[in-house]
Design a protein around this nucleic acid. Structure first.
Lengths: 351, 351
DNA sequence: TTGTACGCGTTATCAG
DNA sequence: CTGATAACGCGTACAA
C-alpha cells in the first residue's frame, strides 16, 4: 500500500505545559499537600474543615488537577490494571471477549492491558513478564500449550490470575470455561439424530487440552451411538495454514462426490475457512452436507443458510473472570476454583 | 447462561512472597543500589568493575529480579505505554487494527492500553482522561463526533496523539487515514461502469466527517456520470438499530421487485447486516442486485459470492500511527501532519 | 562506586 | 479538632 499524499505545513504546538501536581494544588489552596490528598480522597476519618475542603476543591478544579496514578500506584502497590493475554485479539472470539472483559473491568475501576501471543510460548512468557513488570494487579489468561511450569512460577510470585477458554490439567488454578467434551458430544449427537453419521471432524494439530477435549467429545458421541470412527474423517489442520489445509481436505472429502454427510468444525477460524471452501466448491448445504461450527461469528449468518453452531457464554465467561480475579486480589487466600459454564447449541439450517 | 458446576476444594497458595526490589539485589550482591541500577541498565559511561558487574548480574539472576516499571516511570516520566481509543474493540475493523498497532508498539518497546467508547462522547472523554492519568506517552485515537474541543484541551496538556480512521476538520492534528471521498467515488464508478445506476447507498445517521465524506464521494460519482440522485436511495441507519433499520429498508427497496440494482454499504457492520437480509430475502447476487461493501471482514468471503469491497490499508495505518506518534513523543516540536493512504477496490463477484 | 535527592502521591505521626 | 511534617514506594542519575 503506497503512501499517496502527505501535507504537513501547519505548525506544532510548542506551548509546553508542565503537568499540574498535588504541590501546585496545595500551593494554590494555601494548604499542605497532605490536606489536598485527604480532601481529594474523601477521607472522612481525618476531619478536615469545610473551609479547607472548599479551598482544595476549588484549586483542584481551577488547575484541572488530575492525580498521577503512577505515583499513587507506587505508594499503594495497586495499579488497578489487569493484563489480558489471548492468542490473537484480531480473532473475533477473543475480541468479543476482550470487549466484555474491558467493560467488566472498567465497572470495578480497572483498566486492561491486552496482549496477543499467537500461541507462541515465548511471546506468551514475554507478555506476562511485561504485564508483571508493569505491576498489574492480576491476569486473565488464555494459556498456550505447555505453559504449566511458567504459570506455576507466576503463582509463586503471588500474582493472581484466572485462566479462560483453556485449562491446564496439571495446574491448580482458577479456571473459567465450558465443558468442551460435553458440548461437542451434544453437537455430534445432534448431527447423528438428523441422520448424519458420516461426519468429518475438523480440528487442529495441537496440544491444547480444550481442543483435544472437543475431539474426545466427538468420538464419545460416535461410540455412544455405535457409529464407527474413521481416522480419515478426523482432519487435523496446521493452524498456520488453515486455508490451504482445509481446502485440500474438503476437496478430497467432497469431490467429485461427497464421501461424508456432515462437517463439524471445532473452531470459528476453521469453520470460516471451511465455509469459504464450500462456497467455492458449490456444495449444497444442508442438502449434500450438514455443517456444524464452534463459536459465534457474523460470517455464520451471512452463509447461504444460517450455520448451526455451538455458542459459548462469552458474557458470563468475561464477567466471571473479572469477578473471580477481583476476589483473588482482595483475598489472596481465596481457594482455586474451576467454573464450568454452559455452552449452547444453536441450530440453524445448515444441519 | 447458567453456571452449572463449580468445584473448588483444592487449596490456595498461601506462600506470600514479597517482590524482590533493587534493594534486595544490592544487598545480595554487596553493592549499592546505584551500582545495581547502572549495571542493569548497561550504563557504559560510568565504568563499573567487571567484578561488580558479575556480582550484580548473578544476584539479579538468582533472585529473579525484575525492575518495577512503575517506579522507573515515576522517575523517568516515561511509561512506554500508548493508549488506543476506538469505538469498539469487538468490531473487526478495530480489532484487526488493534492487533497491528499492538505489534508495532511492542516492536518499539511499548505496551498498549485499549479502550472502547461506543461513539459516546462521555465515555470517550473518560477513557482519554484515564489514559492520561496513567501517564501514557501518547494516544492513538479514533475520535467520536464533536470531540474537537476536548482534543484541543489534550493538545494543550502536551500529550501527543494521532488520529486514525476519522479526522476532525476543525482540528489541527496529526491524522492517518484514507481519502474516503475519493475511494467511495471510485467504488460508485465501478458500479456505474458495470451498468448499475440505480444504487442505494447505505450509511449512518452521523456527524462523523469520514462517513459524510463517503456519502459525498457517492453523490459526486453519480453527478460525474450524470446519474440522478434520489433521496429515497440514500438510506440512513441508526447505529443502535442496524439490523432493524437495514431489514426494513432493504425489504422496501427489494420486494416484491427490486427498485434498485445495487447496494453500496458504507461500513462493514452495515454490509454484514445487509448481507444477512439479502440471504433471508433470497435475493440473487449479483443477478438481481449488485453489492459493494466497505472494509474487509471474513463474512464477505462466506457469502454466496465473494463480496466486492473497499479495503483499507490497515497495516500501513497502524504502523504509521505508531511511527508518527513515536516521532511526536521524541520531538514535541514535530509538525502536525495529515497522511492519506490508498484504499483499494477489491472486485469480487457481487458487483 | 556510592550516597542521596529526586519523581508524586499516601498516610502515620506529631504539633498547634 | 485541624492540619502540617515526613517517611515511605522503587528506581534513576547527579554530586561527591
Amino acid at each position: 500500500m503506497l503512501k499517496r499524499l502527505i501535507f504537513s505545513t501547519f505548525g506544532a504546538n510548542n506551548v509546553v505545559v508542565k503537568k499540574v501536581s498535588i504541590k501546585d494544588v496545595a500551593k494554590k489552596a494555601g494548604v499542605s499537600i497532605a490536606s489536598v490528598s485527604y480532601v481529594l480522597n474523601n477521607r472522612k476519618d481525618s476531619r478536615i474543615s469545610e473551609d479547607t475542603i472548599k479551598k482544595v476543591k476549588n484549586a483542584a478544579q481551577e488547575l484541572n488537577y488530575r492525580p498521577n496514578k503512577i505515583a499513587k500506584s507506587l505508594k499503594t502497590q495497586r495499579t488497578f490494571t489487569f493484563g489480558l493475554l489471548v492468542a490473537d485479539i484480531a480473532n473475533p472470539y477473543f475480541s468479543q471477549l476482550a470487549r466484555i472483559i474491558e467493560d467488566a473491568a472498567k465497572h470495578i475501576g480497572c483498566t486492561l492491558i491486552i496482549g496477543s501471543c499467537d500461541e507462541d510460548k515465548e511471546k506468551f512468557e514475554d507478555l506476562i513478564n511485561t504485564f508483571c513488570d508493569r505491576q498489574v494487579d492480576g491476569l486473565i489468561i488464555a494459556p498456550v500449550a505447555n505453559s504449566a511450569n511458567f504459570l506455576e512460577r507466576i503463582q509463586k510470585q503471588a500474582i493472581p490470575f484466572v485462566l479462560i477458554d483453556r485449562y491446564i490439567p496439571s495446574l491448580r488454578a482458577t479456571t473459567i470455561g465450558i465443558d468442551n467434551t460435553e458440548v461437542t458430544f451434544k453437537g455430534t449427537e445432534h448431527l447423528i439424530k438428523n441422520n448424519r453419521k458420516k461426519i468429518a471432524f475438523i480440528s487442529y494439530i495441537t496440544d491444547l487440552q480444550h481442543l483435544l477435549d472437543r475431539e474426545i467429545g466427538f468420538k464419545n458421541a460416535l461410540k455412544a451411538h455405535k457409529v464407527p470412527i474413521k481416522n480419515s474423517r478426523l482432519i487435523k489442520v496446521d493452524k498456520d495454514f488453515i486455508d490451504r489445509d482445509i481446502d485440500k481436505n474438503l476437496k478430497q472429502l467432497l469431490t467429485p462426490n461427497p464421501v461424508i454427510d456432515a462437517l463439524f468444525f471445532s473452531s470459528n477460524k476453521l469453520a470460516v475457512a471451511g465455509l469459504k471452501t464450500l462456497v467455492k466448491l458449490g456444495i449444497e448445504v444442508p442438502e449434500k452436507i450438514g455443517v456444524l461450527a464452534f463459536d459465534e461469528v457474523e460470517a455464520y449468518k451471512v452463509f447461504k443458510v444460517p450455520v448451526s453452531h455451538i455458542k459459548q457464554p462469552l458474557y458470563e465467561i468475561g464477567v466471571q473472570a473479572v469477578t473471580q480475579l477481583e476476589k483473588m486480589i482482595k483475598d489472596p487466600q481465596t481457594k482455586f476454583q474451576k467454573t464450568t459454564l454452559e455452552a449452547s447449541l444453536i441450530v440453524g439450517a445448515s444441519s
